[in-house]
């Protein structure tokens, strides 16, 4: 029983570590800022989720008391990750950070900056 629980925790840990590594790899190799944004918001969040769940299980195993510190941390990260991604993306657009060439609908960024509906004529003239 104990052996299987440890095995489960270990595989969760390894999976979490691999996800974090893949997220970091994506950060280095993806072509532009906007695609790089996807790596940390998803891969890293799940990676750390795995590690925290494993840590919770191991703690319960060792001390017979269920501590839920890790749950608080992962909840906090899951709530804040999309918020910070949104803020950084918005800031990057304001700064006119370039897109990679083959991005679809790049002209939409003009509408996003003006916060108008897609394709609507701008009133002030360009």
């Amino acid at each position: 029983m104990l052996f299987w629980l440890e095995l489960l925790a270990s595989s969760l840990l390894v999976m979490g570590g691999l996800f974090i590594l893949i997220g970091a790899l994506g950060m280095v190799k993806l072509p532009d800022f906007y695609t790089r944004l996807h790596a940390p918001t998803k891969a890293t969040t799940l990676g750390i989720g795995c590690i925290l769940v494993a840590s919770m299980g191991l703690h319960a195993l060792r001390s017979d008391a269920l501590t839920v510190h890790e749950l608080v941390i992962s909840l906090f990260l899951f709530i804040t990750a999309p918020v910070s991604a949104y803020m950084v993306a918005k800031g990057a657009l304001q700064r006119r950070t370039p897109f990679v060439e083959n991005t679809l609908n790049q002209n939409l960024s003009r509408d996003i900056l003006r916060r108008q509906a897609p394709g609507s004529q701008d009133k002030h003239g360009s």
């Binding site: 970091a24 950060m27 800022f33 890293t44 969040t45 750390i48 990260l77 990750a81």
Partner: peptide, 12 residues
């Protein structure tokens, strides 16, 4: 973005 990821990974 790199700093953001760095702090999350350091938590791990």
């Amino acid at each position: 973005l790199a700093l953001d990821t760095l702090y999350i990974n350091s938590i791990a």
